[in-house]
């Protein structure tokens, strides 16, 4: 594995009495693409969200590029700027145009000039195939288009790592591929990615590693090929049996 970029050490989190993350140890190398997979309620989304502290955790540590996650405030905001996040429900800023969605971060957080930010935003929108929609509002776009804009919005910050929290789960089937294609291209370009998804096609095509979680624990990890064809743990076998047999 290459030099570690995201390192989680003994991370624990509770929601009330529920122990959602149990001693999570996970290291993601620079340029690596890691898939988090697991049954509903296994903690995979929570794990993904703790990496930029959209969820807090109680014990353990998470470092990004050697820096410990700060608690709150300006330092945390600065760190989040380096961690891209793509949500299941897109979460584009509803009152801003597509172009403004992509330029907001670079202008406000990076202090980029408006003209420069717009030029770069249009390049990114071109890259994800929605440049011609730049002046529209999010509600005027399809789900697949919105999600691609959300990816462009994250890319505009030049993140060190990108988190994807079930990026295709809210999409109509015919729109899933247009988003996955962008993600595959991103993976090939060397972006470090942590992806919560059940899309096995994507995992096989783009991932270096699959991490299987169950009940808040890392149960098994391996290459996509190993994991999908020859899972070792019973829980992984049971889970794959359920999602593969129809």
């Amino acid at each position: 594995m290459s030099e570690p970029l995201v390192v989680m050490t003994d991370v624990n989190k509770h929601f009330g009495d529920l122990h959602v993350l149990k001693d999570i140890n996970l290291s993601v190398g620079r340029g690596e693409v890691v898939i988090l997979i697991g049954p509903s309620g296994s903690g995979k989304s929570t794990l993904c969200r703790t990496i930029n502290r959209l969820e807090t955790f109680e014990t353990g540590s998470i470092t990004i590029d050697g820096k410990e996650l700060p608690m709150e405030g300006k330092e945390l905001a600065a760190l989040r700027a380096d961690v891209g996040m793509v949500f299941q429900s897109f979460n584009l800023f509803a009152h801003k145009t597509i172009l403004e969605n992509v330029t907001l971060g670079p202008i406000k957080v990076r202090g980029m000039k408006k003209a420069e930010a717009e030029k770069r935003a249009l390049e990114l929108l071109e890259r994800v195939g929605v440049a011609h929609q730049a002046e529209k509002y999010p509600a005027q776009l399809s789900g697949g288009q919105q999600q691609r804009v959300a990816i462009a919005r994250s890319l505009a910050m030049d993140p060190k790592v990108m988190l994807f929290d079930e990026p295709t789960s809210a999409l109509d089937p015919e729109m899933i591929n247009e988003v996955l294609d962008v993600m595959v291209e991103l993976a090939k370009s060397g972006m470090t990615m942590i992806v919560v998804t059940h899309e096995m096609g994507f995992a096989r095509k783009a991932a270096n590693r699959v991490v299987f979680l169950s009940d808040g624990q890392v149960v098994e990890e391996g290459t996509p090929e190993e994991f999908f064809t020859n899972p070792r743990s019973d829980r992984a076998k049971d889970f794959l049996g359920k999602i593969l047999t129809h």
Binding site: L54, A77, M85, F87, A94
Partner: peptide, 11 residues
């Protein structure tokens, strides 16, 4: 999600 997205781009 709007607030989460705002925070996640570093605002």
């Amino acid at each position: 999600g709007q607030a989460e997205a705002a925070r996640s781009i570093g605002l």
